[in-house]
């Protein structure tokens, strides 16, 4: 359970933006470098986060997210502080520009399918079996002579690298970055999505994401005034989180009970 996903999303986004703006590189190589940067940060974080269990783990991940946020805010020479980075160019791969919405949508869809395919592949593989085993009963897997600690680090780094990928794509989409985009609240979004759909289930996460993004549309449809929109939305998310824990801790289609 980690609260710091948004931090890696932010690291991915920021490194893409900084590399794209300051160096004359193609998008593919920028993406490659920013994923490596995210993975390295993820590895450093995992050293601390994975040494702890339950509550402590959660707290350290929150602390990490806030430290990253503060760095984004205060390393002005690199990130331009609260002013943010403006004018990030659109993606260009082999001469195809993804500035237009429909092309961008296709790219995202492709990446989503790729991610789902990739994670399914992992889960179905022998590694996946070990990972599931670690989740369900760590001691048993350890007694079977699997290096559980290495597996945990690998899974963590892999997870945050995909968050970094999402971040890079996001940076080119909105063309403007500021630290508050990656505040804790976005981690909570991710968490609600994952819990809502069910932990330990890929399709659950997708379902959770869809539901979370439908809620604001419903509110708009009901005709709430814009001034109280954001607050009402968050109140609903908050209650949703509480009710989920109360009635269905394993989520809508999850396998893992918190």
């Amino acid at each position: 359970m980690s609260f710091c996903h948004a931090a890696f999303y932010g690291i991915g986004a920021y490194s893409t933006a900084i590399l794209l703006k300051n160096f004359d590189l193609s998008f593919i190589s920028v993406l490659f470098f920013s994923l490596i940067i995210t993975a390295i940060c993820g590895f450093i974080a995992s050293i601390f986060i994975l040494r702890l269990k339950d509550d402590g783990q959660m707290l350290v991940s929150v602390a990490f997210a806030l430290i990253v946020y503060n760095l984004m805010l205060n390393l002005v020479s690199l990130t331009n502080g609260t002013l943010g980075i403006k004018g990030i160019p659109a993606i260009e791969i082999f001469g195809v520009n993804f500035f237009e919405k429909w092309k961008f949508f296709l790219l995202c869809l492709f990446l989503l399918l790729f991610t789902i395919w990739f994670f399914r592949k992992i889960i179905k593989s022998p590694y996946g079996t070990v990972i599931k085993g670690i989740r369900d009963n760590c001691e048993v897997v350890e007694n079977l002579a699997h290096p559980t600690s290495i597996y945990k680090h690998l899974v963590f780094v892999l997870g945050v690298t995909f968050a970094g990928l999402a971040g890079s794509i996001f940076a080119t989409y909105i063309t403007y970055l500021e630290p508050s985009l990656f505040l804790l609240i976005s981690s909570i979004f991710v968490l609600i999505m994952a819990i809502f759909g069910g932990l330990g289930n890929i399709w659950g996460s997708v379902l959770g994401a869809i539901i979370i993004f439908i809620i604001p549309e419903i509110l708009r449809f009901v005709g709430l005034p814009d001034s109280i929109m954001a607050e009402t939305q968050q109140i609903i998310y908050g209650f949703l989180l509480f009710l989920l824990i109360y009635f269905r801790p394993q989520g809508v289609m999850g396998e893992y009970r918190m």
């Binding site: 819990i195 998310y237 908050g238 209650f239 989180l241 509480f242 824990i245 918190m258």
Partner: peptide, 8 residues
């Protein structure tokens, strides 16, 4: 997590 929901 539940308590965090209440905080929000």
């Amino acid at each position: 997590v539940a308590s965090f929901g209440l905080l929000i």
